[in-house]
Each structure stands twice: as structure tokens, then as C-alpha cells.
Design a protein around this nucleic acid. Structure first.
Lengths: 220, 220
DNA sequence: AAATATTTTTAGATTAGTCTAAAAATTATA
DNA sequence: TATAATTTTTAGACTAATCTAAAAATATTT
């Protein structure tokens, strides 16, 4: 159907367009995301444009077409379902699942994905708290907010993280934070922006500003 | 490590060399197995030979080297473990598992395969009864014999099949034959070689000579 | 608005894997 | 053993995806 590489470009464009608002995505940003050169990106954008998977105008950036978006969402669906499988069934930590899912997401079989979804009990979120698109590409809108925007003293529940780097996920583990845990943010340090958090057993920890911005919660 | 394509060539050579005795494998046989042209095979054999994965001499055929055999066995291991997963956990029929496992067998992660093996309870055979190599590539020698070589009246247990074509597997299903079932071969038809078989509930069926040769059993 | 810096695109080359058509080697046949 | 048939290899071309270096367009600064 679509090549491994085409799927990766579509996924990268999807990711960048949702991360950085919904405008056009730049050639350089895609090159960085995929760890390749701008010239290669230009070539591929022409090809994807030929196939009507993206709207592309020279020097003006690129946007996914309707069909391109659909394919991207299917890849995301597969990626996140496999992450759930790896985490829940094979006991991989959330910092380990991403790399393997990058490969598994390209396996071609709709039936396989439907069966996997059944087998996992139709999960709504992956191990990082990101929503899993359904068969038609519909995405549960998530109303999760970054912990650094919650008012001090407001009890909330950890629902996800918005950075998937190994270093960040390892700190999160070390702090004893897991999805579903209850926490209460305290005062922000005026000078450096670091945040004190109260955990369920009354334990208190301090995390940096940047980390607080990548911990997503739901207030209750 | 090794490309998708290289792995497929090694697997094909392994398969052909075990099927057709242990001599050299011919260029044409590989081309047919992989549905490609002899010229392409020659090119790849040179490349694999460069990397010492095969012993190859022009016009003389090819044999896996020690390291080539090891890699082939790892691919076979992955293929068969994924087949067990698809069959046992996701309820795919044995005629459906092969195609998807052809893709899954190329996922690169030793840890993944070890965990999958644990999760499945270290199965010794795939859904077709073929033995699964262990981590080091060791293969349980199977002493399964084709049903048409069993003496009439000898009770035996179905342990596998040696043809994986959809058409054959569908007939096997239709006859009610499954791995583990007990059966007693009756007399062979002198003229056409067809064989009568008694099933557990005393039911009797007749299958052709060719099918009987591809049903593997263990006498008890 | 002109000069400078940045981003993006083009041009041309490279690599892995494949192909066709023709040549060379091997095997089978008469 | 010469001839024919088959198998295998070479030669040269093609595609997808990538790269470097240079040119063109756009954005920023003075």
C-alpha cells in the first residue's frame, strides 16, 4: 500500500502539525523530526503531493490532505496499540515501548490490528496517556492539562506525559509517578520555576519547571 | 543489522537446504521460492558471500555458513513464535498466521522475542507442528513421520503438517483434523493410494495420498 | 529598501534491490 | 563427443530513497 518511508513522513507531519498548532509544517522541521536532510524532505513532499496525501506548495510548507491525515492516524493507532501490548502484556517500561512500536506500526494487516484491539480490551490511551484513534481515525479529545498550570492545592490525577524521551521518562519513574496516581501541586519557586508536589502517602517531591510542563493531569 | 531482504534470502536458503537434503541450493530454486529472478539471486549471493553468510561458488550453488545458518534460525524462531501468538492469543486460523508472521519476523529486538517467548510459555512447536529453535538456534529434532508411512491399525497422534498452503490447511480443517488428535490409519487403496483414517469418535474419513504424506504423526 | 542570514529547492551522484536481454557455463541428449 | 537444452552469470538500466553542494527564494536586520 504505502511504503514504510511514506508512512513515516505522514506520521511526522501529523505529529508536528498537532504539536505546533494547525498551520503549515516546514521542511526543516520535518527533516529534524526524521533525522534526515531538507533536500530529501523536499523530494518526498513532491511525491506525497503527487499522490494527494499532502497539500504542498514550494517554499510555503506542507499540510496533510484528508486522506493523508487518515493514513497518519492509522499509523498512530497501530503505534499506540502496540505500545499498550508491549507494556501490559510483555512488561516493557514506558521508556522502552516507543522504539519497538516504531517498527511494529508498519505491519500491514487491518485484521491484525482489530484483533489486537479486541485482545487488549479496546484501550483508550497508550502507556504515556496519549489517546488511541479508533478504526475510523477518530481521536478522543483529551482535556488533560500540564501540571504547571494547575493552581496550588488543587488535587488532580496524573493522566499522561507530553515528552517521551528516555531521560524524562526515567526521572518520572524515579519520582514514583505513574498514570492514575493522585497528586497535589504546591507552590512554585519564584526564582527558578520549580514545583513542589504532594504524593498520595503525603510524601513531597520537587521537580523542575520543564518537567512540570510535561506532566499532564486531570483535575477532579 | 541485516536487511529485511538479506534475512529473507537466508531464510529461503535454509528452508530449501533442509527440505531437499543438505547439499548446495541452486540459484533457480531460490528465485522460485522468493518469487524473483535468477539474476537478482546471483547479485544477492555475491553480497551474502562478501559478508561470509554463505559459501558460494559460481555455477556451483550455495550453502549457508555457520553465521548465516544462525541468522536464518533466528528468523525462523521469530516467525514461529509470532505464529503461536497470532494463533493462541489473537485466534487466527493456521492458514492465516503465515502471511502476517512473514512481516513480524523482521522486527529487530532480541528482548522482544525473549519476552514474547516467556509470555507464550516457551512453546516447542508452532501451530503447524514445526519446531521452534531456541535462543541459541538449537532445534528440537522432531521424530514426526508422515501418516502414509505408518502401518495400518497403528494408533498415533497428529503432531503437525509439512505443507502450509492455504488449500491444504483448509482441507485439514474440514476433515476435523487438529494437532493433538488421535487417529488410526486403515488400509491404503491399492489403485490410487488414498487412505482411510479412523477418528476418535469412530468416524472414518478418506484422504488422498498426497495429503497423507503431509500429515505428520507420532506413534504411541 | 538594501544587505545579510536563513530556509528551501534544484542538480547531480549514490546505494540497495530489482529487472531484461544476452553471454557463458553446465548438463542432458542424441 | 558433438549438439541441444538448461541454468547461471554478466552487462546495463531502472526505482526508491538518500546525500552534498550550489542556486533560488524568503525572512530578518540594519
Amino acid at each position: 500500500m504505502y511504503s514504510f518511508t511514506e508512512e513515516n513522513y505522514l506520521k511526522a507531519i501529523y505529529k508536528l502539525s498537532t504539536e505546533l498548532g494547525h498551520g503549515e509544517t516546514s521542511t526543516n522541521a520535518i527533516a529534524e523530526e526524521l533525522d534526515t536532510r531538507a533536500a530529501s524532505v523536499t523530494d518526498m513532499l513532491k511525491k506525497l503531493s503527487e499522490k494527494d496525501l499532502v497539500h504542498y506548495e514550494k517554499y510555503k510548507g506542507v499540510k496533510l490532505s484528508h486522506s493523508g491525515q487518515l493514513i497518519a492516524l492509522q499509523v498512530v493507532r497501530k503505534h499506540r496499540l502496540w505500545e499498550v501490548f508491549l507494556h501490559e502484556k510483555l512488561d516493557f517500561g514506558w521508556e522502552e515501548v516507543h522504539e519497538i512500536a516504531e517498527q511494529l506500526e508498519h505491519i500491514q494487516s487491518d485484521l491484525l490490528i482489530d484483533r489486537l484491539d479486541d485482545y487488549l480490551g479496546h484501550p483508550k490511551h497508550d502507556p504515556h496517556g496519549d489517546p488511541i484513534p479508533d478504526r475510523s481515525g477518530k481521536l478522543a479529545e483529551n482535556d488533560f492539562i500540564p501540571l504547571n498550570r494547575v493552581e496550588a492545592g488543587t488535587s488532580c490525577i496524573l493522566t499522561g506525559v507530553s515528552d517521551h524521551s528516555t531521560s524524562f521518562l526515567k526521572s518520572v519513574e524515579k519520582w514514583g509517578l505513574r498514570i492514575g496516581i493522585r497528586l497535589i501541586p504546591g507552590d512554585k519557586n519564584e526564582f527558578d520555576g520549580s514545583l513542589e508536589i504532594e504524593l498520595p502517602e503525603g510524601e513531597k517531591i520537587v521537580i523542575g519547571q520543564k518537567s512540570a510542563a510535561h506532566i499532564l493531569v486531570k483535575t477532579t
